[in-house]
Design a protein around this nucleic acid. Structure first.
Length: 196
DNA sequence: AATTTGTGCAACCGCCACCTG
DNA sequence: GCAGGTGGCGGTTGCACAAAT
């Protein structure tokens, strides 16, 4: 057993449970946001204020959108990152319902990875590059629409038992498939982003 | 079928700026 | 002006799951 000073409150870390989510949502519904440390204490959560704030802003807020980044959002992220660099919160403000954390993850896992791959390709002698194959790689490596729909869509919220417990709580809207309208080819994105 | 490797993402950490007494 | 508390931000880590072997 770990020893902890007896006057130091127990602090939970790691993944949030459904019960904790419910407590936080209900508390905020009744008392509003703000002063996160005292909120955590008052709500009876064994979490830091920071942890509560992060959980609320990134996952529990009713207006948070999760799931696939649309083609339009993808373009915006690239444009704004070119303009502002890693100012994720600033970028997130221009993508309604998206969080800085989500954009940051998206950039690192999809876009940055792709750019690295492309850099490796460009270091090859030109006559070694099979152009169609290169294009295929670009197309397949980072297509927003290829995300599994709701692949990780707020699993706690998505469960029916959770929704059953949540009166007056609107679950976030699923983003519409970008392919339903406005079809973009990845060449459009990367020609804009990589070639200048 | 079992194991290893790669990937995506939720959550934490550390730093800094701002506010208040 | 200073110290302590708090919020906000970007970077990093750890874990679960998928894909490859």
């Amino acid at each position: 057993m770990e020893k902890r000073p007896c006057n130091e409150p127990e602090v939970r870390k790691g993944p949030w449970t459904m019960e904790e989510d419910l407590i936080l949502i209900n508390y905020i519904a009744n008392h509003g946001e703000g002063v996160w440390n005292s909120l955590a204490r008052s709500a009876g959560l064994k979490r830091t204020g920071k942890s509560c704030r992060l959980r609320w802003l990134n996952y529990l807020r009713p207006d948070v959108r999760r799931g696939n980044i649309t083609a339009e959002e993808h373009l915006l992220i690239i444009e704004m990152h070119a303009k502002w660099g890693n100012r994720w919160s600033k970028i997130a403000k221009h993508l309604s319902g998206r969080t800085d954390n989500e954009i940051k993850n998206y950039w690192r896992t999809r876009i940055q990875k792709h750019i690295k791959q492309s850099e490796n390709f460009t270091t090859l002698p030109l006559n070694n590059i099979d152009q169609p194959t290169f294009t295929d790689r670009v197309l397949s490596s980072c297509v927003p629409a290829d995300h599994a729909v709701s692949q990780s869509y707020a699993p706690n919220i998505a469960t029916s038992s959770f929704q059953g417990n949540m009166q007056n709580f609107q679950s976030p809207n699923f983003p519409t498939q970008s392919n339903d309208h406005n079809i973009w080819a990845m060449e459009d994105f990367w020609s804009m982003q990589l070639l200048h």
